[in-house]
Design a protein around this nucleic acid. Structure first.
Lengths: 190, 190
DNA sequence: GGCTTTATTGAGCGATCACTCAAGTATATA
DNA sequence: TATATACTTGAGTGATCGCTCAATAAAGCC
């Protein structure tokens, strides 16, 4: 008896993710979303409930893709290969709205007001860090790097370097490729 | 004939800087500023003209203090000493509103909309990078580090690492001190 | 003290914010 | 085809946004 929605919900979430990613939480108005997603307010709220709820879905999608992508790369290039490839990959991806990390942008924008989305972003960054640690551990087991460093510490430093790189790569006065290569080269000294 | 203002303009700018630094541009409303600075709307606009104008003054103050502080440290600790001390200093300062850099927060928040304040923040980051490069150059001249690296590249990487550190240090799942020490230790290998 | 000049005050401006809802429309089932 | 069940529409909600301005108060100069 019902009537099917005329839109592709998953595609809308991906589109919303890109808009939020680029312009931030406060920087994206409902009008922006309605215009880009081609949804009237009524449809928007029927589909997603609220701006924050859609942002949460977008963040979830973003984080999930991040972990998946990293693990896929590890499958193909090995753990160390994936860790070395990620810096360049992340700033040279052609179709991303901005080079900076959406998790860190969300956290930086909303943490001071104790927004729930900041907590969600932080949780996803913890997941991502654990993913990196797992790859460092595997790289050690595979003999690709020495075992004289704690994988968790390596992961924390690596993640920090990546966040800095992705922030810096937004600026045109910075040569992101150089920094990315240096981060990758650092891993060879382990 | 005139009447003197009852407030200390410089102190108000410093106070506004801390609020903007913490909560961001969109995250700070005029009501917030009026309440914290204890200014009614009329006085506020008579004194500063607009929210953006005050933000610009706050950014200017922030950037100026950053360079001054770095140069003062170099005077006391030498160029390499200052570069090595900065990572720890910047995340352990007791009275700062947030550990993340105000320039990078401003740039990340406003760049996508081509806001004038984003351009101002970027310009200040270029200045800061040049300050780092100058210290690397002096460190080379003083024989504190080798001359086989380009000071500008070293500065770009160093600044990127600092931005990452300061972003990461906001999170309680990250040991900022460890990362800061590693960044400092990296400089000894040059 | 009188006058001029500026600071202070706060009600209120239009615009925009996230969001609601009643009316209209399209579709799957019976 | 008739009916039930959603989806779609867009005018409109109260709240808040950055900001203005006329009225009032206070200080320096004569």
């Amino acid at each position: 008896m019902p009537r099917k929605p005329s839109y592709d919900r998953d595609a809308l979430i991906a589109q919303a993710r890109d808009i939020f990613w680029r312009y931030g939480w406060a920087g994206t108005s409902l009008k922006d979303l309605e215009r880009e997603l081609k949804l009237k307010p009524g449809s928007f709220y029927a589909a997603f409930g609220s701006k924050d709820a859609l942002y949460a879905l977008a963040l979830e999608r973003y984080a999930q893709d991040g972990v998946t992508n990293m693990m896929d790369m590890a499958q193909e290039l090995g753990p160390l290969g994936a860790l070395k490839a990620q810096p360049l990959r992340v700033i040279e991806a052609a179709d991303i709205p901005t080079k900076a990390c959406m998790l860190s942008k969300t956290y930086a924008e909303l943490q001071a007001r104790d927004h729930e989305l900041a907590a969600q972003a932080r949780a996803h960054m913890v997941e991502m860090k654990a993913c990196f640690a797992e790859l460092f551990r595997r790289a050690q087991e595979a003999g690709e790097i020495g075992t004289d460093h704690d994988p968790d510490r390596l992961a924390a430093r690596y993640q920090s370097d990546l966040l800095g790189l992705r922030l810096s790569a937004e600026r045109d006065d910075v040569n992101g490729v150089e920094i990315a290569n240096e981060i990758a080269a650092d891993l060879d000294r382990l």
